[in-house]
Design a protein around this nucleic acid. Sequence first.
DNA 1: CTGAAAGCGCTAACAC
DNA 2: GTGTTAGCGCTTTCAG
Lengths: 367, 367
Amino acid sequence: MFKLCLFLFSSYSWGVAFQNSLMKNKNHTLKSIASTLNLSVTTISFVLNGKGKEKKISNEVIKKVLDYVESINFRPNQVAQSLRTGKTKILVFMVEDISNYFFAKIARIIEDLAYDKGYRVLFCSNENDDTRSRDLIHLFYERQVDGFIIIPSPGIKDEIEMLIKNNIPVVLFDRYFEDLDTSYVVIDNRNAARKATQHLIDNDFKRIGFITIESQQNQMINRQKGYIEAMENSGLKTKILEIPFRKIEDQNTKKTIKKFLMEGKELDSVFFATNYLTRTALEIIKEVDQSLFEELGIVTFDDNDLFKINTPTITAVAQPLKQIGEELMNIMLNLLREEKEQNGTQNIVLNSELIIRNSSIRKNSVK
Amino acid sequence: MFKLCLFLFSSYSWGVAFQNSLMKNKNHTLKSIASTLNLSVTTISFVLNGKGKEKKISNEVIKKVLDYVESINFRPNQVAQSLRTGKTKILVFMVEDISNYFFAKIARIIEDLAYDKGYRVLFCSNENDDTRSRDLIHLFYERQVDGFIIIPSPGIKDEIEMLIKNNIPVVLFDRYFEDLDTSYVVIDNRNAARKATQHLIDNDFKRIGFITIESQQNQMINRQKGYIEAMENSGLKTKILEIPFRKIEDQNTKKTIKKFLMEGKELDSVFFATNYLTRTALEIIKEVDQSLFEELGIVTFDDNDLFKINTPTITAVAQPLKQIGEELMNIMLNLLREEKEQNGTQNIVLNSELIIRNSSIRKNSVK
DNA sequence: CTGAAAGCGCTAACAC
DNA sequence: GTGTTAGCGCTTTCAG
C-alpha cells in the first residue's frame, strides 16, 4: 500500500464552475406539472404510468402531457414511488468478492436478466464475513429492496430467516444452510471433486494432495468429501492442507503451501478447492521454479481465463456460470411474482464440467 | 453460450415452506412504536436519530425507546427517510465492465471508503455504450442517488451536463470531456505510453507495433500520441492497429491481430493499449506458438495478477488503483459536503508506474 | 422535555 | 374523463 504510493504524485488544477442556474431543473413534480397544464395530478399520474387509455383519458390530453413532460425532461421521483408502492425494483446480489472472476461473471449475467424485467441489481461483497454480511442485509432491508441473491457467510442463518419471515424473496447460491428451508442454486460439489480427483488418478497420478479453505460451509465440505471418496476408492492415501480464508494472502500461508507442495517430493499432483487458492499457488510455483510445472499435476476448482494462457494450461472444474445466473433469476422472478402466496422453496443442483488441459496430463518424467 | 449448456443438466427438488406467520414482522413504524409506548413519533424519531440528549429527552424515556426498538428489531424505513430528507446515501459507480480487473479493484476501494462515510455504492457496467449509460444515469437520477462516479462512454456529455445542472455531484475518471468543466481523475496516459514505448526502444526493439481500441476518447488518443511521440523521437516508423471496441471478441479480430503480430515478421515487439486487448492477444499467441513469446517484446497498459504468472512475465503500465480510488472519493465527498455552494471543479492527473518484467527484455535471438 | 402537524412526491380509491 | 384527497413512513418546526 505505502510502497505503491511512493511512486506517485499528483498535480492539481482548479477550475471554477459557473453553475448555470438558468438551466437548473425546476424540480418538477406531478403537482407542478398538473398546475402548469391545468390538469390534476391523477391525470398526469395515469398518463405517465401508461394507464391513459385504460382510464379513458382523451388523446389530446395524453399527448399534451407526454409532450410537456418530454420537453422539461421530467422523471418521476422513484423514491416517492417506492414509498407509496412498497416496491423498489431493486435486487441485491451479495458475494464474497465481486472482483473475483467467478462472482463477477455471474453478476453480469444476473444484471442483464434483471434489467430486462425492470429490475436493477445492487452488487456487494461480504468477504465471507458475518458482520459485514449482516450490515449489508440490514442496510438493504431498510432500503426496502425487493429481493436478495446471496452467497451466505457461515453465520448469517438468522438474517436469512429474518428476511424470509418478512416475506422478502431470498435465493442462496454456491452454498446453503442444510437446516434452513430456502431456495438455492448450487453445483454438485462432491461429484465434481470426485470426478476431478478421479481424472488425476486415471492419468496415473498417485500422491494427490488437496488444498482447500478451512471451512464448515457445505460447498467446501462436499468438495473435500469428493476428493476423499475418489482417493479411498482407489486405495490411495489422502493428503489435505486447509488454509484459513482470511489468511490466503499471508506470507506464512505462502510458506505453508510451498512446503506442502514441495517437501520431500511427497506429492506428484495437487487439486485446489477454489480459484483464489490456485492463483496464489501459481504465483508461488512461478516464484520458485517453473520446472515444477512440468512435474506437478494440477487441477483446480473454478475456471479462469488465465488458465488457458498459463504454461502449462490448467485443468479446471468449470461451473456453469450462465446456467447458475439463469436459474437464480428464474427462481427470484418466481418469488417476486408469487410473493403473497404460500411459497414453495426451489432447490437446484447443477453439474459442472471438467475442462481438461495440459496440467493434469501425466508428464513423461516419472520419478 | 449454447455449447456450454450442452454439458449440463439440472435436477430440481421442491419443498414447501410453511411461512411462520406468527413471527412475521409486524411492520413496525414510528407511529406504531409511539402508540405502544405512549409517546409521540417526534420523541421516537429524536431518540432513534441520536438526538435524545440534544433534545433533552429523559434518560428513562431514551432507554425505554431504545430497548423496545431493539426488542422488536425495528429498522426505520430508509425510503421514507430519503423522501423526506432528499438524500439516499447512495453513490453510483459506473464503469465499462465491472468484472474487469482494473475496474473491479477500484470499485472495491471506493466501496470501502464510501462505507466508512455512511455511503453505499451501486456498481454498474455501461459496456462503453451510450444508450446503456443513459439508461443507467436516468434510472439512478430518478432514484435520487447522491452522486455519480463515472467512466463516461463517448456520447453522454449531455447527461453529465444534466446531472451537473441539477446539482448532482459527478466525478469522471479514466477519461473526460475536454470541453466540459467537470471534476475528474485520470492518469497521464500520454506520458505513460511514451515511457513504455521508450522502454522498448531502450531495450533495443525497433519495429514496435501498437494495438489499440478504435476510439475518439481522450485516454486512448493520448496513449496513441505517447506511442507516436516516442517512436518519432527515435526516428522509428509507427505501426498501429485499431480494433473496434465492440469487436474485441470476434473471430475476425483475432485473425486481424494474428496477422498484425506475425505477418512477415515485421514486428519485433508490441505495445497493447488496454488490458483486454492483451488478454485476447496472449490467447492468440498461446494458440499459435509459445515460442513467439520468446521472440516478441511485449508491454501492455494496465497490470493484472496474471501477468506475473504468465510465461514470460509481462511488462505492464500499472495505474495507481488505490490512489485513483482515494482521489475519486475525496472529490466526491467534497462535492457532497459543499453541494449547495458554487463549486469549483477539481481535476487530478496521476502518474502510473511501468512494471518491468521479462516480456520486454530483449531476447538473445536477434533475427 | 414532549406532542401536533405539515409535508417530501407519488398512487389510487372514490367522487363528480 | 378528470379532480380531490388520503395516506406511504419519516423529519422537523413550532407550541406548549
